[in-house]
């Protein structure tokens, strides 16, 4: 790696990757034991486990790049909300099962395109993590797309709920494609793609699946932002961190 500035940007980039999988994995794990049917319960747990595994890689590397001796656990459990860099969509509450699966699909689709690019990253450590994640992500998107199609093109009630889910989540999709100086630095260093460059492939996949699901894709281009820059999260993140970080905060320095 080159100079200090670059490492700062790289650290931010890795936090964004790791925080997305950390917070989404946490949300998905909230379903454990409460899903509509046993088979889905087990499948969702697999997804959450993959996401937690990816978190360990991304945040582990983030700590290494930062060079202050922080581990993946330190980063997950000892940062406050303003230091989190995940997109807003993943911190939203689960809602009903349909909303959870719609969010999963909207994220998986992005993740698949992103990881596909990162496999070719100039930074070997990142390419390796992407390589490993790509197989998990390919399965996730297949499964979540199937569920979105099944429920969208299912009963009258399931269709209505899935349309409500996409309408609710749509204003959070755009943030995944925003770019800033961190991204510019990653592009310049040949480490990661410009987020905006993922949009075309993403839209093609999302439009195909949602049309198969007989759902209308909203056309409003407005979107919320503030998660991936850390400028302004939703109120939900603080509550999530309150339970996630409870033990580490209450008993500092303990070994678990």
């Amino acid at each position: 790696m080159a100079g200090k500035t670059n490492d700062d940007a790289l650290f931010q980039f890795l936090l964004r990757m790791g925080d997305n999988s950390l917070i989404l994995g946490h949300r998905v794990s909230e379903w454990c034991g409460l899903s509509p049917v046993l088979e889905e319960d087990i499948a969702l747990a697999n997804t959450a486990l993959d996401l937690i595994g990816q978190t360990q890689f991304w945040l582990g590397l983030a700590g290494e790049v930062e060079g202050k001796g922080r581990t993946a656990d330190d980063l997950a459990f000892l940062r406050d909300a303003w230091d989190f860099r995940n997109v807003l969509m993943v911190e939203l509450p689960n809602g009903d099962f349909g909303q959870t699966m719609m969010r999963q699909f909207l994220y998986d689709a992005w993740s698949q395109v992103m990881v596909g690019r990162l496999i070719k990253s100039g930074d070997k450590r990142i390419a390796d993590i992407a390589e490993k994640a790509s197989k998990e992500v390919a399965y996730h998107v297949e499964r979540s797309a199937d569920t979105v199609v099944g429920l969208g093109d299912g009963s009258e009630e399931s269709h209505a709920r899935m349309q409500a889910a996409i309408d609710y989540l749509w204003p959070y999709v755009g943030e995944m494609f925003d770019g800033d100086e961190v991204d510019a630095a990653m592009v310049a260093a040949g480490i990661a793609p410009d987020p905006a460059s993922l949009r075309e492939e993403y839209d093609a996949l999302v439009n195909k699946v949602l049309s198969e699901a007989t759902l209308k894709v909203p056309t409003d281009v407005f979107h919320h932002k503030g998660g991936r820059t850390g400028y302004m999260h939703t109120e939900h993140l603080g509550h999530l961190l309150t339970s996630m970080q409870w033990l580490q905060r209450a008993y500092p320095g303990a070994t678990w």
Binding site: E39, I42, A43, N46, D146
Partner: peptide
């Protein structure tokens, strides 16, 4: 299709 996916997960 879902049976195969469920089998994979279970």
């Amino acid at each position: 299709e879902m049976a195969i996916k469920n089998a994979r997960d279970v």
